[in-house]
Structures are given as structure tokens and as C-alpha cells.
Design a protein around this nucleic acid. Structure first.
Length: 268
DNA sequence: AATCGTTCCTGATAGC
DNA sequence: TGCTATCAGGAACGAT
């Protein structure tokens, strides 16, 4: 699923292809994914020139000539693809540009496309937490976030309103790197562990950005290529395999509606 | 106010 | 073989 490194890759690779392009026509077969409506979206978007592509948390933000925005959340299986002519059985949105196409592929149809006049008017956007690879995300900031939060460490890492961009794959990998159990209550983390966890967040996310993300299920880069991080995964989707650090059997545990993969021996 | 359960969707897999 | 049932999963939303 697309998380921060996948989105970062998407943005970097989309920029060259679509900034400066004019939107001539739009097509969809799934009007339900648009907010407020496809009719509204079509009316406002056609004829616009794409000014910029950026990212905030797991949201892709496309800025238009008019100063308005298209916000795309890819959820579980969405991918933004760009090229001369996109072919794929799961396309649900195509923007026909003056050169090439921009398309949204989404097997499970959970993705959302929102048209906004002003980003700050959108509470789901405004409430997003700190960007973990930004300068704002200092150790002090992380300590402050943890002081204000209760619950299990994995859940807090994945809370978009605390830290934006981390999902199931990278929370598992970060916790393994830091040797902390996903079930560990935040209030029980020692100062030293908080520092190690902070460093692990930066390290794993940076490494995954360099590798251009993880294509463990449906994620694809805008060119249709896969990301390269899957081969670096230590615990995610490795249930019953041996821990690469201590050799114990990796466990998978469901809690709070999601699954955590971890080594029961070396993650405390 | 914070937390919990439900919902959206479809391909893969298990069970018969 | 071919059918049906179950499951995964981000986050908005409604309920408590």
C-alpha cells in the first residue's frame, strides 16, 4: 500500500511528466470516488494547466492554474500512472492532457479524489500531523507527541494526525529496526528507546525513498515500474520466516483491525 | 473528548 | 471442477 516513500516517489516522477500540461478532457467509470461530485470536478478541472505536484502525508496534491487543488488519496491499492496511453484493467480516472495522460488505477476502489478551492478548508488535510522527514520533526517534537498520546506504539506511529505518512509496512519495519514491540504502550517507552525509535523512523523512511518504495501488492510508480524496497523488508509479510537478526520465528498479530509483523524475541 | 465498530471493494485463497 | 465464504486493509463516519 502506498505510504510516504511510495507517495514521495510518485510525486518526484510525476512532476516531469505532468507539470505544465493542460487538461483537455476527463473520464471516469466510478463517480463515487469524487468529492463533492464528478460533475463538479469535471467542470472545474477541464481547461486548467497543472502548476505543481506535491505531497502531504499520504495525499497527492495537484495544483491548478486557477489556484485550486486536486487532492488524491490512493488508500490501499491506488496508483497514479502517467504516460502516452495508459492501459490497465483497473483504471477509474483518466485525465487526457495536451501531451499524454494521467490515470488513477485502483483495484479495490477505495481511493478518493477531492476538488478543493483552499486546502486549509479541508479538515482532514488541516489535521494531519508532522512530516517525519521534515526539519520540523525533531527529537523534542517526537517526545512531545508521545507525551500527549496513549496507546500502543504501532498505533501511534500510524496515526496520521500525529505523524503523517506512515502505514502498516513502514510501522512494522521501523519497530523492528528499533527493537520495540508493536504492542508496547507508549507510556512505557524509556527515553533511550524514544531516541532509538526516532532515529529508526528517519532511517527506514529515507532508505525506502531512495529505493523508490515497496511494491508488495499493487503499488506502481507512475511509469508502471515497481519500487525496490520489498527486498529490504525484514518482518512485513514474513510471518513464520526466521528473524534476520536472531533467527526466531516472525509472528503476525491482529489488533485494532490491522496486522502487525514482528519478532517476539528481539522486539520488546 | 476519546475510542470502538462498521463501511467501502475485489482478488486471492480456503473449504466443500 | 466449480461454487460460496472469508479475509485484507486506510480512514471517514456513526455510535457509545
Amino acid at each position: 500500500m502506498p505510504e510516504l516513500p511510495e507517495l514521495e516517489t510518485t510525486v518526484q516522477e510525476l512532476r516531469d511528466k505532468i507539470v505544465g500540461r493542460k487538461i483537455l478532457r476527463v473520464w471516469t467509470d466510478f463517480g463515487k470516488m469524487f468529492r463533492p461530485s464528478f460533475a463538479e470536478f469535471q467542470k472545474v478541472v477541464v481547461g486548467q494547466v497543472i502548476k505543481d505536484v506535491s505531497r502531504r502525508g499520504k495525499n497527492i496534491i495537484i495544483k491548478l492554474d486557477s489556484g485550486h487543488y486536486i487532492l488524491v488519496h490512493q488508500k490501499l491499492t491506488g496508483s497514479l500512472l502517467a504516460g502516452a496511453e495508459i492501459k490497465n484493467p483497473y483504471l477509474h480516472l483518466i485525465l487526457f492532457l495536451d501531451k499524454g495522460q494521467l490515470a488513477l488505477s485502483d483495484l479495490r476502489k477505495f481511493a478518493k479524489v477531492v476538488f478543493l478551492e483552499n486546502l486549509e478548508d479541508y479538515p482532514d488535510y488541516k489535521n494531519l500531523g508532522v512530516e517525519p522527514l521534515s526539519r520540523e520533526f525533531t527529537l523534542e517534537k517526537f517526545q512531545e507527541i508521545l507525551r500527549q498520546t496513549r496507546g500502543k506504539t504501532k498505533k501511534v506511529l500510524m496515526d496520521q494526525n500525529k505523524i503523517a505518512g506512515i502505514g502498516n509496512i513502514y510501522s512494522d519495519e521501523i519497530l523492528f529496526e528499533a527493537k520495540i514491540s508493536p504492542l508496547c504502550e507508549v507510556k512505557n517507552l524509556k527515553e533511550k528507546e524514544i531516541k532509538i525509535l526516532y532515529q529508526a523512523i528517519k532511517k527506514i523512511l529515507k532508505k525506502a525513498v531512495v529505493a523508490k518504495g515497496t511494491s508488495v501488492s499493487d503499488y506502481r510508480r507512475p511509469s508502471g515500474k515497481k519500487g525496490n524496497f520489498a527486498k529490504f523488508l525484514k518482518v512485513y509479510q514474513r510471518e513464520n520466516e526466521s528473524c534476520p537478526r536472531c533467527g526466531a520465528k516472525i509472528k503476525r498479530l491482529k489488533f485494532g483491525g490491522r496486522s502487525a509483523h514482528f519478532c517476539p524475541r528481539c522486539q520488546k
